[in-house]
Write a protein that binds this DNA or RNA. Sequence first.
DNA 1: GAATCCCGCCACAGG
DNA 2: CCTGTGGCGGGATTC
Length: 794
Amino acid sequence: MEVECLALKDLTSVGKSFSVPKEDGRQGEKENVCLERRRSTPLKPSESGVPVFLVSRKASTSDLAHITPIKCAGLAEPWSPTANLKVLISAASPDIRDREMKKVLFRPIENDVDQVVDSEPAVEDAEVEDPTQFEGAFEEEDAEKKPSRKEKSLGLLCQKFLALYPDDPPAHSPVWISLDEVATNLGVERRRIYDIVNVLESLTIVGRMAKNSYTWYGRQRLWSTLEVLQRRGREQGYHLQMDLPAEARRSGLSREEDGGDGDSGNAGGNRKDKSLRIMSQKFVMLFLVSKTQTVTLDAAAKVLIEESQDSSSHSKYKTKVRRLYDIANVLTSLELIRKVHVREERARKPAFRWLGPVKFSSSGKMESSLDVAQSEAAASEDFRKGKMARHSSFTVTPAAAGVQRQVSSAPSSPRHHLAGIQNHSLDYSRTTTTNGPACQLQCGGSTDSCLSVPLYAQLTHTASSSLPPASTQPCPEHLLVPSPHCLAYLPSLSHPSVVMLYKPPEQQEWAPEGQRSAKMESEDEGKRRRVSGEGEEEEEAVLKKKSKSGSETSEKIGAQSQREAAMFSETCNTSAVSWPSGQQRATESRAGNSIGENTQPSHYLYVPNSAGLNNFNFLIPAGQPAANMSLPPSSVPTMALPFVLVPSAALSHYPLVAGGVQQTQTSDNPSGLRFSLPTMMSPAAFMVGTAPHSVMEASDVSVQHLPSPVAPELGRHHVSAAGTPRSPAGPRQNVGVSTPEPSTPHTPKETTASSSKEFFQTPGTLGSVVSAVPAARKRGSAQRRLDVGHSAAP
DNA sequence: GAATCCCGCCACAGG
DNA sequence: CCTGTGGCGGGATTC
């Protein structure tokens, strides 16, 4: 946290950012790469403020090389990453600013709140153990303090990771995640990302698509997954164990699992059996079936050990506990659990208390405090089950095995997605917008690589942060919310393209996840099931899947995307919008179709970039009212046309106008775009993206000439630079966007990270992000250290 | 001294 | 064989 704090400071106070170069001995170490960078950029780890997001590998690589390392401190360069942040912040309404500051500064990542719980039944939250822990951060400042261990914690890292993506991404527009990119951007070793991703995957927050490629589902499926886990936990008798006294626990462990595992068991089984993923699911199950919803590490470790049939040697125990800490950190970041202490017998034992929902309706609804959800996600659940089933231990449920991870390394693309895509007929006419099915912009390039979407921006209003469970219905809040739009940069396409998804106001309501998933996924499920047969064979199923073709799907997708691209339609509603220069072919399409009509109303703007995205670097929110940021979501009407893509070249000609964005403002005019180019010009305008999710670092982008996918969030997120007249960003057209707004509130708390770069950057690392990316990949995993540093180094 | 958990070696697995 | 994954546990930090 400290880091963030610093960052914030930096933001506010100009000079600092550049000030102290820090370097610590440690830094040199692999993970936090970029020593050099660091040096060059005084910014301490924290500095890198704006998370940059991903560039496609391709682009990144080449571009990166060129990239200038971070600017020198001395530079007036407005666009240093930091500058960017500053701009954003300044631009942001005070509220936002404050909010973020709080989040960043005060919110301890891991174990933030440590509470002491009385013995199990009486778990209660006690005081926070270390309220002050984060304070230190402020002081340090530039100090070269080596990033403390905490700063590098998995929990913090996970938060950063989560902050990059929306909690509740539109169902139809999956966000692709490239592990390499994430690792690079966060400035950590890939290995660490695996830890996070494995846990997230266990909860279906992400899904693995192919090697190095994951899809971000956000919390859409989370609730259903939890429900499934709860069920499984019960089936496996975890509830019995959890309720038993400690001693008793051991004896009675679930045999089902053991037995069930049987195969998996391969004694020793495949590694998969010991997978962090599996452990994570089991760990979660324990919470879900526990009456007290509090699980001590000790108990969990024991349970897990038994299941694994490992002899419970002490070392095994220790190892399990270590893993559980890893898992717990991620879950804590997700705010699904919180650390507490349970007083048992003699000492107080570390434990975690479940903060998530515990009751689910059979339908998959979650009845929890959170709220209601309605969902018909039954199908989707199955889907999830399947996924979970990967492990033999989960055999219990017959759920579709097929669903399981699609592959290990094979580039399998999840079928459900594909299905969705294929099925949809895209309707390019805007008129029907409301019905737009989700367009699955999966754009996969024809290449496997499919998409990594560097940025993903979603408009969500803050309120949305506490999203309803995935399958739930549209929550009222959402309705109010500005339509979420997201921008995706699809590097994998032959030509990098930008796709912007947006939902017309009318359609604001998100389709209930459940519905979507149910339909799409269910189909898949069905297929898979057929293939795999019952749940028991999950393992097998997996194999089968693997064998399956990911490639096909990807290709299909790619084809589709191209097709879509081809469909360039100006006709679309763009009515209001005039493409800046007709040059680009932009298509605004709306998918029409199949999936919940109203629910997924999305339109998307697809900009094939034959020429190279460079030409289309900017996405400008058409009507972002700068002011709106502070306004309640409801107050902000969403415009029909959220943003305009402006070729970068074009922009250069325009004078920067301060506050332009604001001018544009107002939503009402659906049709009429109110923006003026000049307005757009203002840096601020560019900053639009949603905060956490889409963060792209301006500097990086610009340097790279990558198309900056900006994700403008409609609504308030856009910070219009308005206020900030110019950050001298002039040169940097590409500014990535960053959103200050923590729109993604993972939890009620609003976890979202601040947009500050620092937040995303691992403390020891530098913004290095930029550079290294591709290179890293080449190296062996073990060796692959992000060498951002050197790439970055001038 | 115990609790945490970062870090990265190294084995396994897919291609 | 190379690279992606990820198990594992030594040992550094933090409590």
